[in-house]
Design a protein around this nucleic acid. Structure first.
Length: 202
DNA sequence: CATGGGATTGACT
DNA sequence: GTCAATCCCATGC
């Protein structure tokens, strides 16, 4: 299966965040189905690109389809897919995977945790797959990290929207998206009153 | 050049 | 439930 082209990322970031659910993330021998994402856009204060063009945000304002990988809390690498046309600072944070292939490699890096916990968080999945800061700015349509169209059984999924996790600004935006019923989603997931089921967007 | 704040996780009370 | 680990980078002097 071939990787999604850059044009698939040159769309409104909230659309792409939902469209990536069910797609397969691949790095080396490891693959997993994307089951949780969040959208970030320079127009809102939670997005790193909100501060404008700096060395750090350069990639966010650049070509769609690139990886934005940054260090969080001094410890974890978090993986994003840059979206919208160049000149707009926007990205989809990949928050969780349902592991498919390379389980042994993932377990070697993550320890003896249950399968559904191997990639159930943005820092966990980069650790499991071995994705680090050197992959910042790499081309997701060329590799070594790629995102491919949904595999068997993942073509049609119901999407649940909610508030984004771990931020202090623009907390009200319902820009977190999960696959309904997925077990490998990240921790804070008590369905709230503002959660809604959104239509599938491709 | 010094400072402060995280798009988190896991260990511990 | 609380809390520390740890480093990149934006900001301000």
């Amino acid at each position: 299966m071939s990787a999604l082209g850059a044009e698939r990322y040159a769309r409104p970031v909230v659309e792409v965040a939902q469209a990536l659910l069910g797609c397969t993330l691949r790095f080396g021998p490891c693959t997993g189905v994307i089951v949780e994402t969040e959208a970030y856009h320079d127009s809102e204060a939670a997005c790193h690109a909100h501060v404008g063009l700096t060395p750090r945000t350069h990639v966010l304002f650049g070509e769609p389809g690139r990886a934005y990988v940054y260090r969080s809390y001094g410890i974890h690498a978090l993986l994003n897919a840059v979206c919208e046309p160049a000149g707009v600072g926007a990205a989809v944070l990949i928050r969780a995977l349902a592991p498919l292939d390379g389980l042994e490699e993932m377990q070697a890096r993550r320890g003896a945790v249950h399968r559904e916990d191997l990639c159930s968080g943005p820092g966990k999945l980069t650790q499991a797959l071995g994705i680090d800061l050197e992959l910042n700015q790499s081309d997701l349509s060329a590799g070594p990290i790629t995102i491919e169209p949904p595999g068997p059984g993942w073509e049609e999924v119901d999407v649940i929207a909610g508030r984004r996790v771990g931020i202090t600004k623009a907390v009200e935006l319902p820009w977190r998206f999960c696959v309904a019923g997925a077990r490998s989603v990240s921790k804070p997931w008590p369905p709230g009153l503002h959660d809604t089921v959104a239509p599938r967007v491709r």
